[in-house]
């Protein structure tokens, strides 16, 4: 039956396009907060704080949404956080993360903020609220960097 029809080809596999890439573009060409990623490459998790009104932002901004000042400074959030809530992605991970599953995700209190992040080196059963977690930096094949945390060893 199918012999009747001319065969045409559609590529089955394509390189993950940037529209489906969860990691932010980090080069100054693409973003006004390139400094965040430069800081991250130096091992520092930072964000912006308004020098005019003192408001601390997450994610980093280029304009203060409280007073509209553009006079913002980069502040270091430190390397140690406290786990506030957590889960583990077991089924239903999105493209690009399927191979990573299962992996833990948590909400981490750090430097006056509450941010989401991957929690490495732990299973769901190992975690509890208020666990100490430490910053780690990960690097993608293309040189882009991102932050994660790992569960600190108990003393």
């Amino acid at each position: 039956m199918s012999a009747k029809f001319e065969k045409i080809k559609r590529q089955d596999m394509i390189k993950l396009p940037y529209m489906l890439d969860f990691y932010p573009l980090q080069d100054e060409k693409f973003t006004r907060i390139g400094k965040f990623f430069q800081n991250l490459k130096e091992g520092k998790l930072t964000t912006t704080k308004c020098k005019n009104c003192g408001k601390l932002f997450w994610p980093p901004r280029i304009v203060c949404s409280e007073c509209f000042s553009e006079n913002l400074e980069w502040v270091d959030l430190g390397v140690e956080g406290e786990l506030y809530a957590f889960t583990e992605m077991r089924l239903g991970a999105p493209l690009g993360f399927v191979e990573d599953a299962p992996f833990c995700i948590g909400l981490v209190k750090i430097g006056g903020l509450l941010i989401s992040a991957r929690i490495d080196e732990a299973k769901y059963e190992d975690l509890k609220a208020r666990d100490k977690v430490k910053l780690k930096i990960v690097e993608l094949q293309d040189g882009r960097v991102f932050y994660r945390f790992y569960k600190a060893k108990e003393l």
């Binding site: 969860f22 997450w58 994610p59 239903g92 999105p94 995700i105 941010i115 989401s116 991102f146």
Partner: peptide, 9 residues
């Protein structure tokens, strides 16, 4: 970029 990237669906 800040939550989805961590697998947060």
């Amino acid at each position: 970029e800040w939550d989805g990237v961590n697998g947060l669906s």
